[in-house]
C-alpha cells in the first residue's frame, strides 16, 4: 500500500526487487493529515483491493 505521490517509486522499487507487477494498492495523498474518520473511510473503500492483492495467484 502506498499513497499516490509514491506510486512511481513503489513500482520502481518492486521492479528492483524482482517483483514487477506486484499488486500495489494506491491511497490518496496525503494520508498523515487526514482525520481518523477520513482514514476509516479510505480503509473501507480499499479493503477489497488489499484482499484481492493478497489472494491473487502469483
Amino acid at each position: 500500500m502506498i499513497t499516490a505521490a509514491f506510486q512511481t517509486a513503489a513500482q520502481l522499487r518492486a521492479k528492483t526487487l524482482g517483483l514487477e507487477g506486484h499488486p500495489i494498492v494506491v491511497l490518496p495523498h496525503p494520508l498523515a493529515s487526514k482525520t481518523e474518520d477520513e482514514v476509516k473511510t479510505i480503509a473501507r473503500d480499499l479493503v477489497g483491493s488489499v484482499a484481492g492483492g493478497l489472494t491473487r495467484a502469483a
Binding site: 505521490a5 509514491f6 512511481t8 517509486a9 520502481l12 522499487r13
Partner: peptide, 10 residues
C-alpha cells in the same frame, strides 16, 4: 543508487 527525482528520490 537510482536517486533520481523522477524515480525513487522523493
Amino acid at each position: 543508487g537510482g536517486a533520481k527525482p523522477d524515480g525513487m528520490e522523493k
